[in-house]
């Protein structure tokens, strides 16, 4: 699979122009364009600070000592590589495709979004890994920064989506254990699951010092429930679960339930300092991505 099979050339070019700037500096092995909070092996001087007992003698700035007769330690700022892990939901609920999303299912949208992010970050020599899941972890690629790693990522993303149920809470806990050093975790999912469980899992990820971005992918139909007449709703995750109802009669109740779900999810993300971005499949993902990065730049 080529990258152009997943992303239109126009979008790809726009993505290439984007600069991904993490809000927090993450730890990395390679010097890159991301600033690190760790002072160490870098050529860029940051500041002096008074010597305290225990500091390395080699870090003392003897020139300053000669001028001021005081001991100061020289500190440097070092650039690091971003270690990013894309966590993509490939459960049955992600297969939904409404009329307004040009035949693109939520999973296809997630695929394109993940591919864009991977391409962008690999172009910056950041390491990008991938985890796909439904009710369990289904595929896993460790973070790499090689350009050829993009093909492996895209290949894994292009695998067929399962019809299994989502268990976000359980999966995220497993994901947390699989993640290595702290880095950026980008979750791409519809978040159709128990929010309290998700919240606990996010807290677990955050406790390992990972920065978490949550892209919630929704179809417009799921947001405004535009159905009327008698509709048989068949569950995409469980074949035996279906309901035949007068769509209008439950619309208000559904919207209210959705609103409650969204509120809880937002609260959970805010509590865990997770950035939640809701994207709908009728919206160009590159635009949404651009908006997000602009937001991160402002927050920096």
């Amino acid at each position: 699979m080529r990258i152009l099979d997943l992303i239109a050339p126009k979008d790809l070019s726009r993505v290439a122009k984007l600069q991904l700037l993490a809000r927090q500096v993450v730890e990395g092995l390679c010097s890159g364009r991301h600033r690190s909070p760790h002072k160490g092996f870098s050529v860029e001087f940051k500041e002096h600070r008074p010597y305290v007992r225990g500091d390395e003698l080699s870090d003392i700035d003897w020139k300053v000592f000669a001028k001021s007769d005081r001991l100061y330690i020289r500190e440097f700022e070092e650039d690091t590589n971003l270690r990013c892990t894309l966590v993509v939901d490939c459960s049955g609920s992600m297969r939904y495709s409404g009329d307004r999303s040009e035949g693109r299912s939520k999973y296809e949208y997630a695929q394109q979004l993940a591919a864009s992010l991977a391409y962008l970050m690999l172009g910056q020599q950041d390491t990008v890994g991938l985890i796909t899941f439904d009710d369990d972890l289904r595929g896993q690629l460790p973070p790499r920064s090689r350009p050829s790693h993009l093909r492996a990522l895209l290949t894994k993303l292009a695998e067929d989506v399962s019809r299994r149920e989502t268990d976000l809470g359980g999966v995220f806990r497993k994901v947390a254990s699989k993640l290595g050093r702290r880095g950026l975790v980008i979750i791409v999912s519809d978040a159709m699951g128990d929010v309290s469980s998700i919240s606990r899992s996010l807290a677990q990820i955050r406790s390992r010092k990972h920065e978490v971005l949550f892209f919630q992918i929704m179809d417009p139909d799921e947001i405004d429930f535009p159905f009327s007449g008698r509709i048989q709703f068949k569950d995409l995750e469980r074949a035996d679960n279906e309901h035949t109802v007068e769509a209008l009669s439950i619309r208000e109740a559904y919207l209210k339930r959705l609103s409650e779900h969204e509120t809880k999810l937002r609260d959970a993300c805010r509590t865990n300092r997770v950035d939640l971005i809701r994207l709908t499949t009728d919206r160009p993902f590159a635009d949404a991505l651009h908006e997000y990065l602009a937001l991160r730049r402002r927050l920096r």
């Binding site: 159709m192 799921e222 509709i231 048989q232 709703f233």
Partner: peptide, 27 residues
């Protein structure tokens, strides 16, 4: 019309299940 309906493969059944379970009798 009771015997005629449209089928929709629905993803957000997590939300719809609760709504229908709570309001079925009233509906």
């Amino acid at each position: 019309f009771r015997s005629r309906f449209r089928t929709v493969d629905w993803g957000a059944m997590h939300l719809l299940d609760t709504v229908i379970r709570v309001n079925r009798r009233r509906i």
